[in-house]
Write a protein that binds this DNA or RNA. Structure first.
Length: 113
DNA sequence: CAAGTGACTAGTG
DNA sequence: CCACTAGCCACTT
């Protein structure tokens, strides 16, 4: 069966684009949903490429690491990611950390409808 | 083509 | 929770 190899990237865009308002998810959750589990780094790379490829159409600011830290804000710009999340009623535990367990969203929830 | 780099995670101490 | 190590895969040089 002919299968695409960049299937992973397209999937990442699909998932991230469907994260609901005020919700966030982690790289590991996306990676695991796509079936790669240990390669959570690729999720970050996919988003990084999407910025150069598609621009801010993807709510990349709703994707954080497993601790809820805004690791990706480095590529966004200082304070941009933080501000966007604060506008979505996301609770911050620190200047760079959100309450992950309060806003965590699993990819398999709404994509399964 | 080989080596280096990276928006990560899990395990160990 | 912090520090360090190993594994992971794609992209860049």
């Amino acid at each position: 069966m002919t299968k695409k190899k960049s299937d992973f990237y397209d999937k990442v865009y699909e998932v991230v684009a469907q994260i609901p308002f005020g919700k966030v998810t982690t790289y590991g959750a996306i990676a695991h949903y796509l079936g790669v589990g240990g390669s959570a780094r690729l999720v970050g790379w996919a988003l990084n490429m999407s910025i150069n490829a598609q621009g801010p159409d993807l709510p990349c600011h709703r994707v954080v690491n497993r601790l809820g830290q805004l690791t990706g804000k480095i590529h966004f710009g200082s304070g941009v990611m933080e501000t966007l999340l604060r506008q979505e009623d996301v609770r911050f535990l620190d200047d760079d950390t959100i309450d992950l367990k309060a806003h965590f969203w699993d990819p398999s929830i709404e994509l399964n409808t």
